[in-house]
Design a binder for these strands. Structure first.
Length: 718
DNA sequence: CAGCCTCGAGTTCT
DNA sequence: CTCGAGGCTG
C-alpha cells in the first residue's frame, strides 16, 4: 500500500478508523522493539519496522490530537515521556462529519440531508444555519464550576482526554474566572453552576513566526533539545503538551470558543447534557453567551440561510483564508435552532446537525523521488525536486523548485526524504522543510553537477552569484530550445501553435538551428513529425507567417539578450527607433537610455559584437520579419498632455471584462505606466477577483484600490 | 552609500 | 507570484 497518498483524501475525520490503526501500529511496534532490543531476536526485517514506524509518525503528524506520550515515536533514548493524567469527558467530544467536496456540493449535500431529516418539502422556507471557521488547532474542553476554571482537557479520542490545565491557565485569552460582561447577551444572566466551554487552542501566524525565530536563535547559540516547528498547529500542540508550564507560557497561544460540553446553569438542574435547547434556543444564543462570559468568539461566525447562504460563506471565507492571521482548514455549518438539533440527534459519534466543509490542505507530506537539474534559457541550472504525487492546495503536485544549490543545501533536501510541501502564495509549490527524523539511512546531500546535464559543457558559478550556468550557450540543446520558445512567446513574436513539444522535436531533429530557420520551415518537414498532420502543420505555418509583421520592441525582446526584458526592449525601441541604431550604439550612448545602467548596456553591446547575432538579425529581416521603424526619440518623454501621464498602475487578480494585456495597452495609450509591483509610488491598484499579496500590500500602504467598475469610469472619462 | 523602486527570470498546473 | 539584482534617488 502507498504510505503517503491514502490519508486525508478518503475520510479525514473518521477518527475511530484512525484510532484503530494507531492502536494496532503501536502494539505491533512495541512488540517488535521488545523482540529486537530485549530478546535480541528480531521477528521482522528492519525495513518492515521502518515502514510501520513511518506510517505511525505520519498519522501522528496528521492527527496531533491523538498523539500518545507513550507512543514508540515519543521515546527519547528508550524512556517514554511522562504522561499526562487522563480524564473522562462528562459529555463526549464528538467529531464532525467532513465534506471535502469542492465548491457547492458539500454545502448542498448538507442542506439536502437536513431538509429531508426535518421533513421539509421543496416549498418550505429556508433553513437557518450558523457558519463558522474551522480553526486548525487543538480542540479543548475547559470546565468551570461556580465560575472558576477547574480543568482543561484535550479532545484525546473523544471519550478520554489529557489534563493540560497547567498550560491552558497560561493562555491570557482564557478567563480563569467567569465574569458577566454583557448580561443582555445571556439567556441566564447568572454565573452557571457548571459550564464546559469548548473551543480551539491555536497559534497565530505572526506568533508562530516569532516563536520559530526565537527557537532558531536558541539553536544557533547551542541550546540542546530545542527545535523549530513545521506549522502553527504542531507548535500549538507542542506548547499544550509541555510538562513545564513556564515553557508553555513562552509559546503564545490563542483561543476561540465555539461550543459547550456539560452545562448546568442552575444548581439543581439535571438536564440531558446533550440537549441544550432548554438553555440556549439557538447556536447564535450560545455563541453570544460565551462572548458575554468573556470568551473570545471569532467574528467571522455568521447566520446564513439555506444552501445558497452556506455556499456563499464557503466561497467568501475561501477567498479570505490567505489573509487571515491564523490557519483554518475549512468552515463548519451548524443548524442554528437547538430544538431542531435535538430532534436530529446523533449518528454513532457524530451530530447529524453539523458538518465540516474543508478546503484543500495547503500543506502535505510527501517523499522526494529524485532531484533533477533543469537548464533554463540563460543556461541557469535549477535543481527541481521530483515528488511522489500529492494533492495540495487543490492540485496534484509532482515538482517543486529548489531554486539553486545554496537553497537546496540550506533546506538539505535529499533523495528519499519525507518533506512538507506547500503551495506558497497562490500557485507555486514549495518544499517547506525536511522531516529529518524520518530520514532513512544517510542519502547523499545534493550537489550541483559540474557539467551541464544536457550538453555536458562545464557549469560555472560566477563570483558572487547564486546560480550555476551552463557555458554551452546555443551549443546546448536546452538553451537553444528555450531561445526558440522565448522568441515565439506571446510577448515577443507571438507565434501561436509553436509549443514546447514541437520545438523539442524540431531541435532534436536538427531542423531548427538558428532563429531564421523557423521562417524556412516547409510543410513537408513538419508532416514527418509526430502528432503533426497536414491540418496542424498548415496552422503552424500560418502562425509563423502572421508573426512576420511585428514591432521593434517585440523583436528586440524576442532576441533574448540578457537583462533585456519586455520593458527594457520597449525603452530601447523608443529611444533608437531602428534596429540598426540599436546594433551600432556604443556603451556610453546606451547608458543615456532611461533605466539602462552599465550591466544592461554592456550586455546589449556584447550581444551585437557577436557576428553570428548580427547575422541572425539580418537573416530574420531577409526572411520577411518587419516592423515600422520610427524616428529616434532620444530624450524619451513627450506625452505630458495625455490624460493619465505620470500615473502608475498595477494590475492584480483576474479581471472579467478585460484581458490584462489589453488593459495594459489601453492605459499606456493614455500615457499611464503599468508596473508589476506595488510601492509608495503607485497611483492605484486595479484589483480583480482573487487578488493576493499585492492587494494586501496596497492596503498596508494605503494605496487607492480600483475595482472593475471604477476602472471603467476611469477609462471612459478620459 | 543605503534603501527604495522596478524589472528580469524562473516556475507549476489545468 | 517571488526572488534577486540593476538602477536611481536622497
Amino acid at each position: 500500500m502507498d504510505l503517503f497518498s491514502s490519508l486525508k483524501s478518503d475520510d479525514p475525520e473518521d477518527l475511530s478508523e484512525v484510532i484503530r490503526e494507531l492502536t494496532s501500529l503501536k502494539e505491533l511496534l512495541n512488540q517488535y522493539a521488545y523482540n529486537y532490543y530485549v530478546l535480541d531476536a528480531p521477528t521482522v526485517p528492519d525495513a518492515e519496522y521502518d515502514r510501520l514506524y513511518k506510517r505511525l509518525e505520519l498519522l501522528e503528524y496528521e492527527y496531533p490530537q491523538l498523539l500518545d506520550p507513550n507512543s514508540p515515536t515519543q521515546r527519547v533514548g528508550g524512556a517514554a515521556v511522562e504522561a499526562f493524567e487522563s480524564h473522562r469527558h462528562a459529555v463526549p467530544m464528538l467529531s464532525l462529519k467532513t465534506e471535502t467536496n469542492s465548491e457547492s456540493s458539500g454545502a448542498e449535500n448538507f442542506d439536502t440531508r437536513i431538509r429531508k431529516e426535518l421533513g421539509l418539502g421543496p416549498n418550505a422556507p429556508l433553513v437557518e444555519y450558523i457558519a463558522e471557521l474551522k480553526f486548525d488547532g487543538l480542540a479543548m474542553n475547559i470546565r468551570y464550576e461556580d465560575g472558576k476554571l477547574v480543568r482543561a482537557t484535550t479532545r484525546g479520542d473523544g471519550e478520554f482526554g489529557e489534563d493540560v490545565t497547567h498550560n491552558i491557565r497560561t493562555i491570557s485569552q482564557i478567563p480563569l474566572e467567569l465574569k458577566i460582561n454583557d448580561a443582555k447577551l445571556l439567556t441566564h444572566p447568572v454565573i452557571p453552576r457548571v459550564l464546559e466551554v469548548r473551543g480551539e487552542v491555536y497559534m497565530r501566524l505572526d506568533d508562530f513566526q516569532k516563536l520559530n525565530e526565537r527557537q532558531r536563535d536558541k539553536i544557533l547559540k547551542g541550546a540542546k533539545g530545542e527545535r523549530t516547528f513545521v506549522n502553527p498547529r504542531n507548535a500549538a500542540a507542542g506548547a499544550v503538551r509541555q510538562l513545564d508550564p513556564r515553557i508553555a507560557a513562552e509559546r503564545p497561544l490563542s483561543f476561540f470558543a465555539y461550543g459547550v460540553g456539560e452545562v448546568r446553569w442552575i444548581n439543581d438542574e439535571q438536564t440531558n447534557p446533550q440537549d441544550l435547547s432548554s438553555i440556549f434556543k439557538t447556536h447564535k444564543n450560545l455563541l453570544d453567551s460565551l462572548k458575554a462570559l468573556g470568551f473570545p468568539v471569532d467574528s467571522h461566525a455568521e447566520l446564513v440561510s439555506g444552501a445558497q447562504g452556506l455556499i456563499s460563506y464557503h466561497q467568501r471565507m475561501g477567498q479570505l483564508r490567505k489573509n487571515l492571521p491564523f490557519d483554518i482548514d475549512g468552515v463548519v455549518y451548524k443548524l442554528n435552532d437547538t430544538t431542531l438539533q435535538q430532534k436530529l440527534g446523533f449518528i454513532t459519534r457524530e451530530p447529524k446537525w453539523a458538518v465540516a466543509h474543508k478546503y484543500p490542505a495547503q500543506e502535505e507530506l510527501t517523499t522526494v523521488l529524485g532531484i533533477e537539474v533543469q537548464v533554463g534559457r540563460t543556461g541557469k541550472l535549477t535543481p527541481v525536486a521530483k515528488l511522489s504525487p500529492v494533492f495540495v492546495g487543490g492540485v496534484t503536485v509532482t515538482n517543486a523548485t529548489l531554486h539553486n544549490q545554496d537553497e537546496a543545501q540550506r533546506k538539505d533536501v535529499r533523495v528519499g526524504d519525507t518533506v512538507i510541501v506547500r503551495r506558497a502564495g497562490d500557485v507555486i509549490p514549495e518544499v517547506v522543510s525536511v522531516l529529518l527524523d524520518k530520514r532513512v539511512g544517510t542519502p547523499e546531500p545534493f550537489k550541483m553537477p559540474s557539467n551541464c546535464p544536457v550538453c555536458a559543457s562545464l557549469a560555472v558559478r560566477e563570483e558572487g552569484e547564486a546560480d550555476f550556468r551552463c557555458t554551452g550557450g546555443l551549443y546546448c540543446a536546452a538553451q537553444r530550445k528555450q531561445a526558440f520558445l522565448h522568441f515565439a512567446q506571446r510577448k515577443a513574436l507571438n507565434i501561436e501553435d509553436l509549443g514546447e513539444k514541437l520545438v523539442d522535436q524540431l531541435v532534436d531533429t536538427g531542423t531548427l538551428k538558428t532563429l531564421p530557420d523557423m521562417y524556412r520551415l516547409g510543410l513537408t518537414s513538419l508532416i514527418t513529425l509526430e502528432r503533426m498532420a497536414e491540418k496542424s502543420a498548415s496552422n503552424v505555418l500560418a502562425s509563423i507567417e502572421r508573426s512576420k509583421t511585428t514591432t521593434l520592441a517585440r523583436f528586440l525582446f524576442g532576441l533574448g539578450i540578457r537583462h533585456v526584458g519586455e520593458t527594457t526592449a520597449k525603452d530601447l525601441a523608443k529611444h533608437y527607433g531602428s534596429i540598426d541604431a540599436v546594433m551600432s550604439a556604443e556603451v556610453e550612448d546606451l547608458l543615456s537610455v532611461k533605466d539602462v545602467g552599465p550591466v544592461v548596456a554592456n550586455s546589449v553591446r556584447t550581444f551585437f559584437d557577436q557576428p553570428h547575432n548580427v547575422e541572425v538579425v539580418n537573416q530574420l529581416r531577409a526572411c520577411g520579419v518587419s516592423w515600422s521603424e520610427s524616428a529616434p526619440n532620444g530624450s524619451g518623454s513627450s506625452n505630458l498632455e495625455l490624460p493619465l501621464a505620470g500615473k502608475t498602475y498595477v494590475i492584480t487578480g483576474t479581471l472579467s471584462r478585460y484581458s490584462r494585456e489589453d488593459l495594459k495597452e489601453q492605459l499606456e495609450s493614455l500615457g499611464a505606466k503599468v508596473s508589476s509591483s506595488v510601492s509608495a509610488k503607485t497611483t492605484a491598484l486595479i484589483a480583480g477577483e482573487a487578488a493576493g499579496s499585492k492587494l494586501t500590500k496596497a492596503q498596508e500602504l494605503g494605496i487607492l484600490i480600483l475595482g472593475e467598475d471604477e476602472l471603467e469610469a476611469l477609462l471612459n472619462f478620459n
